[in-house]
Each structure stands twice: as C-alpha cells, then as structure tokens.
Design a protein around this nucleic acid. Structure first.
Length: 108
DNA sequence: ACCTTGACTAGAT
DNA sequence: AATCTAGCCAAGG
C-alpha cells in the first residue's frame, strides 16, 4: 500500500482533524473550520469534504453548519433530519431553523 | 485539458 | 433582510 500525499489529501486530513475537535453541544461553520485548518477561503472545500465522508464515519459532522447558523443540507432530506435530530439531542435549540452562534458557536 | 457543480462566505447593493 | 458577485478547492463529465 503506497502512501501518496497530494495537497488534496493533506487538506482533507487537516479538515477532519479540526472537525473531530468540536465538542458536543457546540457548532462550527464551514468557514471557521477552513480557517482553523489553514485554508482561509476554503469554506466550500469543507462542505465538499463533509459530503464525501463515509457513512460510518465517527466524525461529528453534524456539528458543522453554515455561517448563518443554519443546516446547509436540503430541508426535508434524510441527512438534514438526522443532523437536526443529533444537534437537538446534544441540547441545541433551534429558532425558526436557526441556531444561535452566540450561544452555541464553538470557541477553540 | 476545459467546463460545471457544490453540505460556502464576506462584502457590496 | 434579501440578492448578487467574486473567490476558493476538489471532483466529475
């Protein structure tokens, strides 16, 4: 098994690493993750990486939302429903589909 | 190799 | 508050 370290692989691993640090009951935005991973304008890449996570991943992907405090997945989709349920389980309160970043935003 | 598509965002209008 | 726009990075056609 040869180990190939492309730039894309490194970026992906940095993103995984940051996401794994978000504590329960807190949320972080795509842009915030990107910045912490050393990719200041890579918000979109974070979304792409989340989208490609294996179904059985143990990463707390549900704690990643957009800068408006909303879930970016399509409303009504199974994924959106699961994400919302997981967040509510952790004690997060939604107000009109929005999460208060002031109260629940992760401060590393 | 070229073009389009996203779990995006800050800034301008 | 609602829209637009340009910028970013990887993947897929």
């Amino acid at each position: 098994m040869t180990t190939i370290t492309t730039q894309a692989n490194q970026n992906r691993e940095r993103i995984w690493q940051i996401v794994s640090q978000i504590p329960p009951g807190k949320v972080a935005s795509y842009g915030q993750i990107a910045t912490l991973a050393g990719l200041p304008r890579g918000a979109r890449l974070v979304g792409h990486v989340m989208n490609k996570l294996p179904q059985e991943t143990r990463l707390p992907w549900h704690r990643v939302i957009n800068s408006q405090g909303k879930i970016s997945l399509p409303v009504g989709s199974a994924a959106h429903t699961e994400q919302k349920a997981r967040l509510i389980d952790e004690g997060i309160i939604f107000n009109h589909e929005r999460i208060s970043l002031v109260h629940y935003g992760w401060q590393p």
